[in-house]
Computed example of a mutant assay.
Amino acid sequence: MKKLTMTIGIISSLLVSAAYASDADIAATLAKLGYTKESITISNTPMPNMKSVVTPSGKFYITNDGQFLTQGPIYNMSGKQPQNIANESNLALIATIAKDAIVYQAPDEKYSIYVFSDYTCGYCKKLHSEIDTYLKAGISVHYFAFPRAGLDSDVAKNMQSIWSVKDRKAAFDNAYRDGKISPASSVVPYVKMQYEVGVKLGLTGTPAIILPNGELLAGYVPANKLLEILEQTK
């Protein structure tokens, strides 16, 4: 019995060592791309011998030995419908900023979506001009800021002002109607946080819609089409 316990202990130690070695190999590979160990988050995936890495520039998938790296959706085909394995981690990222969204609540809510938006984006304006159509369809819309020109842009500063005032929704509506944006007396960090989450999600433009299952839709989707998509993912 003592020998068996010792053997189990040795195996456990080897497995732990292998896990640490794997993460070290992954960190070494990401260092070649300019990412420090502190700036990345390594997680397990359902795929054998492959992990996901969230970086300041988006998400990658990488083999445990750090030799092979890819980016983009990877689908699990074992179920009735293809399932993007990134969806779960997308929701985890959204959860870190969810409380700071500007929310348009549907009176008879069937679904909630998260939309990364920029008030200078034509299709973002189109989506917001139809906000009542989404709400009537039972789709609540939670907005996040994603200034396409980056955090040092005037757009980012203006979006910070929108998120800093007491009546955010009124300021948001005003901006999307091309109204003048007044500088806020104090600035909150929400826009920076939301932008960084958007980058980690791999966003390259706006609007970007996150569905309740974590699926990412790039671009404007009219309410009737979006409702069909939501029904299919139910």
Score class of each variant (00 low, 15 high):
188 V>G: 09
232 Q>V: 07
89 S>K: 11
30 L>W: 00
65 D>L: 07
74 I>V: 14
28 A>Q: 06
10 I>V: 15
216 L>R: 06
77 M>Y: 11
156 A>Y: 10
83 Q>K: 14
15 L>S: 11
100 D>M: 00
122 G>E: 07
212 P>E: 03
35 Y>H: 08
94 I>H: 07
114 Y>K: 15
151 L>I: 12
131 I>N: 00
208 A>S: 03
164 S>N: 11
130 E>P: 03
195 Y>P: 14
138 G>R: 01
72 G>K: 12
220 Y>K: 02
103 V>M: 11
164 S>L: 12
23 D>S: 05
213 N>F: 01
196 E>C: 01
63 T>A: 08
26 I>T: 11
144 F>E: 00
92 A>Q: 13
217 L>F: 01
67 Q>I: 03
119 Y>K: 05
7 T>R: 11
14 L>W: 13
137 A>Y: 02
11 I>K: 09
157 K>L: 11
202 G>E: 07
104 Y>P: 05
222 P>D: 15
176 Y>N: 07
19 A>D: 12
142 H>A: 05
200 K>Q: 15
172 F>R: 03
20 Y>I: 13
115 V>K: 01
148 R>T: 13
42 I>H: 06
225 K>Y: 06
108 D>E: 14
188 V>S: 13
162 I>F: 09
145 A>S: 02
49 N>L: 13
39 S>M: 08
101 A>L: 00
163 W>S: 00
138 G>V: 01
213 N>Q: 08
45 T>Q: 02
190 Y>F: 07
212 P>T: 09
29 T>L: 10
89 S>N: 14
150 G>R: 13
105 Q>S: 05
221 V>D: 01
186 S>C: 01
120 T>H: 10
184 A>H: 15
84 N>I: 03
62 I>S: 08
189 P>K: 03
181 I>Q: 09
31 A>Q: 03
217 L>I: 08
4 L>E: 06
151 L>K: 04
168 R>A: 04
175 A>C: 14
196 E>N: 08
130 E>N: 09
121 C>K: 02
221 V>C: 02
34 G>A: 02
152 D>R: 09
128 H>R: 03
227 L>E: 07
88 E>R: 10
39 S>R: 10
76 N>S: 08
58 G>A: 08
184 A>I: 15
20 Y>T: 13
76 N>M: 06
55 T>K: 10
102 I>E: 02
182 S>D: 14
182 S>N: 14
174 N>R: 09
84 N>C: 01
57 S>W: 04
100 D>N: 05
